[in-house]
């Protein structure tokens, strides 16, 4: 169990670097880079820990993305940058690249196979399964990140009104 925790923590480091690379690609301000690294690691670790405890991958990803979304709102207040500057690079490491790749591979195989064969029905069910996982994980990511931003925006507008009155 101890070794397993160590492997998960090591992955946190890589989640951080994956997020950082996208931050630089999107040209985020320098003062936000460290936060993006930390938030990428936090979101990824949440997902992995929940999955290690036996939660479904879609729910785990949703929880990880929601954590990133909530953190991005508070980071936005402290570092004076909109929430999406933090949240978009931080959730990209959770994108289901492996599932999308396997779905693509399956589609290529299907396009060349005879449809009555045993091989066809097995590949078809694998491809549909991988495709559905890709779709639902992507939706979980986007909704998890978007909801905290939309909830907090109402508060910001309230603050403006108070200031103007």
């Amino acid at each position: 169990m101890q070794i397993e925790i160590f492997t998960i923590l090591e992955k946190g480091i890589w989640f951080g670097f994956a997020a950082l690379g996208f931050g630089v690609l999107f040209n985020v301000p320098q003062r936000t880079l460290l936060i993006i690294w930390l938030m990428g690691a936090a979101g990824g670790l949440t997902k992995l820990l929940l999955m290690a405890l036996g939660t479904d991958i879609v729910i785990s990803t949703f929880m990880g993305a929601t954590l990133v979304g909530v953190l991005s709102v508070s980071a936005a207040h402290n570092k004076h940058a909109p929430p999406l500057v933090f949240s978009i690079p931080s959730v990209i490491p959770m994108v289901p690249g492996a599932f999308a790749y396997r779905m693509m591979l399956g589609l290529i195989k299907l396009s060349g196979a005879t449809f009555t064969s045993e091989f066809y029905s097995q590949t078809l069910s694998e491809t549909v399964s991988n495709g559905l996982k890709t779709l639902f994980i992507l939706m979980a990511l986007a909704v998890g990140v978007a909801v905290p931003m939309l909830v907090s925006r109402k508060e910001t507008i309230k603050k403006i009104r108070q200031k103007q009155e």
Binding site: I92, G97, A98, M139, A142, V143, V145, A146, V147
Partner: peptide, 26 residues
């Protein structure tokens, strides 16, 4: 094949997809 699957991930349309969902919910 992990290398093959992950070498194209730098191209994923993260900003369009997340902004798309944000706009739809909004």
């Amino acid at each position: 094949d992990h290398a093959l699957a992950t070498s194209v991930l730098f191209l994923i349309p993260g900003v369009p997809l997340i902004n798309s969902l944000t706009d739809l919910i909004d």
